[in-house]
Computed example of a mutant assay.
Amino acid sequence: MVVSCWSYYILVFTETGAEEAAVVLTKNAEVKRIPVYDKQGFLLQLETKLPPELAYKYGNLSSGACKPGYAAAKMTTIYPKFIKSAPMFLDRNFKRLSKISHYLPPFGIKTQERIIDSILTATKNYGLGERLDRLSCKRCIIVGNGGILYNKSLGTRIDDYDVVVRLNEAPVKGYSRDVGTKTTLRITYPEGAIQNPENYEKDSLFVFSGFKPLDFKWFRQIVFKENVRGLDGFWKSVAHRVPRDPTEMRILNPYFIQEAAFHFIGLPLNNGLMGKGNIPTLGTVAITMALHNCDEVAVAGFGYDMSSPHAPLHYYEKVKMAAIKESWTHDISKEKEFLRKLVKANVITDLTKGI
């Protein structure tokens, strides 16, 4: 009788966990290391199934019911280092958040503590609002600005989510059939903010994401309704007024920029400073935020199809895909790799199937 080989697997763990591997022993005592996790710490063979106890837990819920903790549970199966606790917005205890205290913007709050403290004194509120904060299970959708949303008639489905997140200046009026009418919060930075006050929808939170010290100065002027000045340093024109009370404004936790860039995508650290190709897009930052703060996470309007140069770049304008040039700040290909992991492992649901 001829025995070709025999093998068994031993998990070998390193301090970081990023180099975990299975060791295969053959009958000839040959040792082969087969990587289990990639450099970022994600499973190479993405697990789409939940552990039996969680499958039982969610399987017993009625059809269509919100699944408490589902996104975090799924994320942990493919990325064991994931820790859910990370507040969505900064509050008066922000100086205790050690993960952001040692980084300069956009990855932290170093040098901006005083101005942030001043802003938070005025905003006074640090959550989504009483009704949403009380929910025991939140279903969130991040609506991207991609042309892939056009003519998909997803508006009603998008509005069914508890929390609808929109980005920068992407409009709702005139596009509701495809993108819905509901906006829970709009995340933006100075150059991306809606400039015409009449174009802001009602009943939504204005969420500031700061990428440079100048951004925080701008936001303070907006919050206190001062004349916006000191505009040198912005790469395009910025909003001079936001029709929101300070209590309807928030500061996004910069940890989500840091985690998306360095932990999830694997962008260059560059000594913790903003540099070439190490800033994640705001859409991926918003998804990272949702993984920590929502029970179920969906996206729509994500994904650029570079093989279709004549396709619309954004759902609200006629600019074509061919207009995209290599970005100095973003690494779109690496970012897409990360988002595809989330979709493939069913951590998030992609309504427009563009990722």
Rank of each mutant, 00 (worst) to 15 (best):
R131W: 00
L97F: 14
I324F: 14
M75E: 15
W235C: 02
K138M: 05
L214V: 10
L269V: 11
T121I: 06
S209D: 10
I279P: 05
R96K: 15
V223T: 04
E326C: 01
N125P: 00
I10F: 14
T181H: 00
H310C: 04
N125C: 08
A55V: 09
Y56N: 06
C294G: 09
K225W: 01
F42R: 11
M88C: 14
N271S: 12
A239E: 05
D117C: 03
D331L: 12
Q40W: 00
L120K: 07
H102P: 05
K173L: 03
M289Q: 12
G275N: 06
T352A: 01
G283K: 03
G174Y: 00
R177L: 05
Y175V: 00
P268G: 11
V179N: 08
I251H: 13
Y304H: 05
P246C: 09
S333D: 14
S153A: 13
E169Y: 02
G233F: 01
L11N: 13
V319Y: 05
A18I: 04
S237L: 01
V164T: 05
L132W: 13
Y70H: 06
M306N: 13
T247Q: 06
R114P: 03
I257N: 10
M289V: 12
L313H: 07
E20A: 14
I265S: 03
E201V: 09
V242C: 01
W235I: 07
F94C: 01
V36F: 01
F82R: 00
P35L: 09
E15T: 09
K173N: 03
E296M: 12
E259Q: 10
Y315N: 06
H330W: 10
P213I: 06
F208V: 00
P80F: 09
G180C: 14
P280Q: 02
L282C: 10
M88H: 10
Y150R: 15
V3Q: 14
L269M: 00
I100T: 11
F256D: 02
A261Q: 06
C137W: 13
E130D: 12
F13V: 13
Y9P: 13
G64V: 06
Q195F: 01
C294R: 14
L267K: 15
P68R: 08
K95G: 12
L252M: 13
M321D: 11
L135G: 07
Y200N: 11
V343S: 03
N28H: 13
T247I: 14
V297L: 05
A55Q: 14
P309Y: 09
S327A: 12
G303S: 08
L43R: 12
G146Y: 01
T329N: 04
H292P: 04
L273M: 07
M75N: 15
S209G: 03
Y70W: 10
G146V: 01
G233C: 07
L149W: 02
V3T: 15
L291I: 00
Y304V: 02
N227R: 08
F42I: 13
T111C: 06
A71H: 05
V3L: 11
R186N: 15
I119M: 07
T121P: 03
C137A: 06
A86V: 08
E317A: 02
